[in-house]
């Protein structure tokens, strides 16, 4: 095997960092949501890489579970976005300040 595991881990770190930047700077809530999905997938990639390195498949199962949670999260989160958009007519994250003070 020619590509070292650390390369895969580094790729995961890069993707995770991109996801973090996205979450921090984007003002569109749907993009923000997608950035979270990206971060989840970066973590998944690290899991897969470790699985491969240690020759166990438990990581695969974890990835599977993470995907399930992501799907559930997407369903609920998008539902919330629809509701908020219906009430506030915006997808600007900075205007979602219901919990202010």
């Amino acid at each position: 095997m020619s590509v070292p595991i650390s390369a895969y881990l580094t790729l995961a770190a890069v993707l995770f960092g991109l996801g973090t930047v996205g979450v921090l700077i984007t003002r569109n809530i749907i993009v923000l949501f997608m950035c979270i999905e990206l971060m989840l997938n970066a973590a998944n990639m690290a899991l897969i890489a470790f699985s491969r390195a240690l020759n166990v498949m438990d990581g695969h199962v974890m990835v599977f579970l993470v995907m399930t949670v992501a799907a559930a999260e997407a369903a609920v989160g998008l539902g919330m976005i629809i509701t908020i958009h219906r009430n506030r007519e915006t997808i600007n994250i900075d205007r979602f300040d219901l919990m202010k003070w």
Binding site: V3, Y8, I30, E37, M45
Partner: peptide, 30 residues
């Protein structure tokens, strides 16, 4: 890359469920 790492099943799941279903859900909402 998943498939390259030997995670055949999970890689396919990623394409079908993630790229397929969940992203379509996003598109649908948009």
């Amino acid at each position: 890359i998943y498939v390259q790492l030997g995670a055949l099943f999970v890689g396919i799941m990623l394409v079908i469920v993630y790229a397929g279903a969940i992203m379509v859900l996003f598109l649908f909402v948009i």
